[in-house]
Design a protein around this nucleic acid. Structure first.
Lengths: 182, 182
DNA sequence: TTGCGGGTAGACAGATCTGTCTACCTGAGT
DNA sequence: ACTCAGGTAGACAGATCTGTCTACCCGCAA
């Protein structure tokens, strides 16, 4: 049994920050709480992340890696074609901790004070688009199709976040994909 | 010349809160700043809104009224049919103060602490759906069409918020509408 | 004239937030 | 045996946040 304490402080901070930021929001989560949750000393925290904004950037980078690799895996598990998108999203939307897209949430919360979150979000979504574009066969209007798909997926994420169930969001994506493919 | 001071305190508070909440986010905006901006005394503020949460609820209600009536007007100006949606959204997305959907933003920021924002958001979106459903002629699969449209519009709002220009978001909605109508 | 609804200015309490500082501990490699 | 990277506990400073309190003001209607 590997004790928890053997995990390096930086990693513990990052995973705690991830869970708290994602669940409660970034501004709602104080440094003290992250320190308590990760069981790290305050000095240690500030040695790794000189300011909260540095932690926010690291959190977004971490979230990006984590989400993209989960997404790729889910698509593969569901058949690695365009019809894998809906069941992959369904998995996410139904998961216990689902709270929408961490990037979209941080844009709404911070874009004015930390302008780079928009850029970070664009990179993240660009990467997501690149992953789904591998599922779409060569065709005319391929770019329009992918652009429309990206917008529909973001809309579905939002709907699943505020709706009582994610079913309508999933149906909408399903329907849009159906009418979109030639 | 009607001096500004003749506008009742409650209204001044509400419009200031609206502008600040929408631009900077709700948590990022302190009561003191709203008080300063609206030129009202602190006691007056707390007489009208006993707590910040009361103000948040009033803000969402106010925003709802204001946005819906703007939206209806914009759709009418653009021909009051399904093809009015894209130019109406274009107007909004290009406007100086555009910062996405106030409801979506507050869900991301507050849903955990103030659960009713999800419900308020559902009501708002329900109302939006009702407005656009008046543009859609009777047809088979009408409900699916409207549901898909609602998701696509929310996705476009998000995209327009973090993208450098709203053009791709608008193109996506345009494309989705085109393939959606029979 | 008197009463009152609605307003003003600003000090204050108490919590909480970010970030700094001092002083100490531990274990692995040389 | 020694060093040093990396860690710990927790007090403290200073800003900022929500919410309360006292004391005063003005215009209008009965």
């Amino acid at each position: 049994m590997q004790p928890i304490k053997k995990i390096p402080a930086r990693d513990r901070i990052l995973t705690s920050a991830h869970d708290l930021f994602y669940l409660y929001g970034i501004r709602a989560t104080g440094i003290d709480r992250i320190i308590a949750e990760s069981g790290v000393a305050k000095v240690t925290f500030y040695r790794h992340f000189p300011s909260k904004n540095d932690l926010i950037r690291a959190f977004l980078e971490y979230r990006h890696q984590r989400w993209i690799s989960w997404f790729k895996g889910a698509l593969e598990r569901h058949g690695q074609d365009i019809h894998a998108i809906v069941p992959a999203l369904a998995e996410w939307f139904h998961s216990e901790q689902f709270r929408g897209c961490a990037f979209i949430n941080s844009v709404g919360e911070l874009a004015n004070e930390l302008p780079e979150v928009c850029e970070i979000t664009r990179h993240h979504k660009q990467h997501m688009i690149q992953v789904i574009s591998e599922l779409v066969p060569q065709s005319t209007h391929r770019d329009e199709l992918i652009n429309a798909l990206a917008v529909a997926i973001d809309g579905a994420i939002i709907h699943a976040q505020y709706d009582t169930t994610p079913e309508n969001a999933l149906k909408a994506v399903d329907h849009i994909i159906a009418v979109l493919i030639p």
